[in-house]
Nucleic acid binder design. Sequence first.
DNA 1: ATGATAATGACAATCCTTTGCAAGTGATTT
DNA 2: AAATCACTTGCAAAGGATTGTCATTATCAT
Lengths: 149, 149
Amino acid sequence: MEEVKTFESICNLLRNRSYKLTPQRQTILQTFLEHVDRHLSAEEVYMLVKHQNPEIGLATVYRTLDILAEIGILLKNDFGDGRSRYEFSRKDEHHHHHHLICLGCGNVSEFDDDLLESLEAVIIKRNQFKIMDHDLKFYGYCSQCGEGH
Amino acid sequence: MEEVKTFESICNLLRNRSYKLTPQRQTILQTFLEHVDRHLSAEEVYMLVKHQNPEIGLATVYRTLDILAEIGILLKNDFGDGRSRYEFSRKDEHHHHHHLICLGCGNVSEFDDDLLESLEAVIIKRNQFKIMDHDLKFYGYCSQCGEGH
DNA sequence: ATGATAATGACAATCCTTTGCAAGTGATTT
DNA sequence: AAATCACTTGCAAAGGATTGTCATTATCAT
Ligand SMILES: [Mn+2]
Ligand SMILES: [Mn+2]
Ligand SMILES: [Zn+2]
Ligand SMILES: [Zn+2]
């Protein structure tokens, strides 16, 4: 339904949901547009954003991340490092991509696969379970870190 | 290599690793043997264990769960509810099972699948990533909760 | 511009988990 | 059986991410 997500279109989306367009929210949004492909924690966003706007508070960052995730602009991830990590949701990905998490350096890479679709059908039949979402992660070592393992 | 995991065999395993066989550790282990198939949080273990041994401390529960997970007796799970959940590791499951998590009642069910094996081969080639472990979860609604969804 | 109302920032509070520490205990040696 | 000593325990305090409170400020429809 939606096409490309520009800064403007997202601002409109916020307005349509009757969220106010504050400079803090704009700055945070900008940060993600400048870091598509990254998986940022609240603290990391906070640090990046403080360069533009040193007055901003960490609580505001948390609140804004919540909102942006709620309206589908950001995806909230848990990679097991004790904090939530957010990434810009590029496409209208109903079935989003999966993650490869390096146990050495913590770097996160991605991959797409449709294999889970067929798996879901099996599960629904076998367990009478209505699947709403799935989460697949691979833990291992990236090419830089993989030497010793 | 290992066969059935009895209370005795696990005690021996602890001794072999030069862990002392304290009554606290035995009680916690018993609790899991009496609740195979459950996914217990530290707090839940603490509550169950206090019936047998009211003197036990929560910190001891945490420390024991750590040890039992480290030596492969327990599996540590993160189902996204803000606490770690441990389950008895029944078989020598190198590739362990996956979880269906009900968004309604929080109940956790399980299923096995070998589909990921072939997927791993693809990933290794495509991303030159050495996979050590994977984590697959499905979120949805169980048959009891599924009516309204 | 004005007012209703939502949002902000500073800080306290919460929740799960880990850690420091003094006292206690299990396993091993005499 | 007693001594030994490193490992364990329970308690309280500390951590770390996230949320709640609340007075102040800013947005936006009118
Ligand atoms: Mn991603
Ligand atoms: Mn399980
Ligand atoms: Zn790496
Ligand atoms: Zn349910």
